[in-house]
Design a binder for these strands. Sequence first.
DNA 1: TAAATATACATGTATATACAACTTAATTTT
DNA 2: AAAATTAAGTTGTATATACATGTATATTTA
Lengths: 238, 238
Amino acid sequence: MQKSESTPIYRKLLDDLKKQIDEGEFKKGEMLPSENDLCKSYHTTRPTVRQALSELTNMGYIVRQQGKGSIVAEPRRGLGILSVSGVTAGVGDQNLKTVIVEKPVKQEWPAELLHQLSFEEKEAGCIYFTRLRYINNIPILYEETFLSDTNLPRFTSRSLENRSFLKVLYEHYQVEVVGGEQKIWAIAADKNKSKLLKLKLNSPLAHMKRKLRTNVKDLNIYSWLYCNTENYYLDDYF
Amino acid sequence: MQKSESTPIYRKLLDDLKKQIDEGEFKKGEMLPSENDLCKSYHTTRPTVRQALSELTNMGYIVRQQGKGSIVAEPRRGLGILSVSGVTAGVGDQNLKTVIVEKPVKQEWPAELLHQLSFEEKEAGCIYFTRLRYINNIPILYEETFLSDTNLPRFTSRSLENRSFLKVLYEHYQVEVVGGEQKIWAIAADKNKSKLLKLKLNSPLAHMKRKLRTNVKDLNIYSWLYCNTENYYLDDYF
DNA sequence: TAAATATACATGTATATACAACTTAATTTT
DNA sequence: AAAATTAAGTTGTATATACATGTATATTTA
């Protein structure tokens, strides 16, 4: 994966530092190089460096202390995406089944993505599909996925069934997820979701809106997740 | 530059805009004055104005669109509790109020911590207290906290009211959170929680069980969180 | 009239610089 | 030896400026 020359300096610095923290090169409690040192390394000036550090702070990767420096806050395992785990044991591949509910179609971008779309994303239009994930043959997770119709990916339904969607993206198109964010709510199941997940109306559901950034410019994956947490939970390590 | 006031210019601008949005002076979907206009109003320059707008963006108050302007966003804001830094990291201190519901008392460890306690933790016993956190005077988060009665911390109720609990631990006892894990469910509010959070019975709640590991051996902080996500959400970056 | 072009204005990125405020460690004074 | 001071280094705040890039509208052109 290579960064185009149009990638802003602060973005490169941000991604570099983030990667180094993720991979444990900078460990929790350690200090990052000072702003002035980073200026020298990246041949830039403090405001630019500070923009990167400021975003790292917002993401919770570092804590900055006046007079002292930038302290690494919390190493994250892997991508840090909330995963679904069982109460008893981990969920192996065997017990996991993924079924397409709605095949990929081109449609309008939804209004409530919570993220501003770039021009290219809007231009390209939106591919939309939905899937239902079963654990031990019980529907646990309903997932609506939106991504821009840029360039490459032409999905067959089959390619989304049993393998991870992200795995397909990586193996076929060298698309990698480099970061993202998610927002989480508890909501009451509406008619549609309760039917899909075989739950009573108004059952509590964990709802997530995710944006996954990739190494391809203007290719972000947006998904809305609805998870039955009666017997499973979402977990996270930090 | 003269400092007749001690509060930074960007802070004032930030607070002013935030207040105007909170109070509905700027409504959802409307445009804020342009950066240059704000420069003139506040007799300052773009970088300073942009610092304020940037923080407003992080707080979810506005969305900025290149070429267009700053648009007032949905008044939903992230709590940031998925990171170790605690609730105060996500929402400004100003509108956050913490109230002790049950003062710290020594009691038995609960059975459903989901984590195995060490011998020393069991030996030391458990300090328990509960708090209710308000944002803009609305109860949003109910928190039950358990920690072992090891060594140091003797909390007064007051020390837990307005400042972050973790901050107190750090400043008074040099206790730092070095990692942890959390599990998340969506649950229906029972009688107790619905009363505390002023919700209808069975309203969906985000429920988390967290274990925070510290730099002190056998001092872990366990907490059970119950969060009303009607108007706020939990968020996470990776 | 419809399409292409120019324009004004918005935010995005970046450089260069200055001083304030805080932290830490070394130095000086008591 | 202990306390106070100094100095060096760090982040925080701010000014001033320049150009790039995206949006919307007015203008020109076909």
